[in-house]
């Protein structure tokens, strides 16, 4: 019973912070509510008995990516005068509606196989074993992707460094 109470609480938190990310005038507040949203999602993971995933979510999203986002906010000049394009009303309404239809469609006609009752042991050890054995290829592909993005970041920084000197 407590799981469902926590679930509603957390999803309410996530939805409201997501809404404030979009609607907030002050960009810094938007960044903060984004972090709140990530922490809410992490809470939902924990609620579903996947603590490792929740901790990873907090560590990577809320702890690193969002802070780098704020880092970027703090460095750019005159943050508060961010330009608001008002002329994209049509796109603003059309795309969310399309997305909503798509999501609801998939949810309705997907066959949900009922869970088998006893809690599946989703500990870290089994996760690691899965990485190393069944989906090793996917693991290596992700590693390559990360390496490429790292190299890209270095190139961009190096170029910018060159222009300043």
């Amino acid at each position: 019973m407590t799981e469902s109470v926590f679930f509603y609480l957390l999803s309410g938190l996530v939805l409201s912070s997501a809404w404030s990310v979009v609607r907030n005038e002050n960009l810094f507040h938007a960044g903060l509510s984004l972090i709140l949203c990530f922490v809410g999602v992490a809470g939902i993971y924990m609620n579903l008995d996947a603590p490792f995933l929740g901790a990873m979510q907090v560590l990577i999203y809320a702890g690193a990516i969002a802070v780098l986002l704020l880092f970027g906010f703090m460095l750019t000049h005159d943050l508060m005068k961010a330009r608001h394009e008002r002329n994209q009303h049509l796109a603003g309404i059309l795309i969310p509606v399309l997305m909503a239809l798509l999501l609801v469609g998939t949810i309705l006609n997907a066959q949900w196989h009922a869970s088998s009752g006893q809690p599946v042991n989703f500990g870290v050890a089994s996760l690691a074993r899965r990485y190393m054995q069944q989906d090793l290829v996917a693991f290596e592909m992700v590693a390559l992707l990360l390496l490429a993005s790292l190299m890209g970041a270095v190139v961009i920084a190096r170029k910018e460094e060159g222009s300043r000197e």
């Binding site: 810094f28 903060l32 972090i35 603590p51 490792f52 901790a55 990873m56 907090v58 560590l59 809320a62 702890g63 690193a64 969002a66 802070v67 704020l70 880092f71 906010f73 703090m74 500990g123 870290v124």
Partner: peptide
């Protein structure tokens, strides 16, 4: 059962509070 990672994950949020205070 995620003891160590829990500590590290939570303490990564202190950066956030310092950035908030700074800004």
């Amino acid at each position: 059962n995620i003891g160590v990672v829990h500590v590290v994950a939570i303490s990564s949020l202190t950066v956030l509070s310092i950035v908030m205070a700074g800004w």
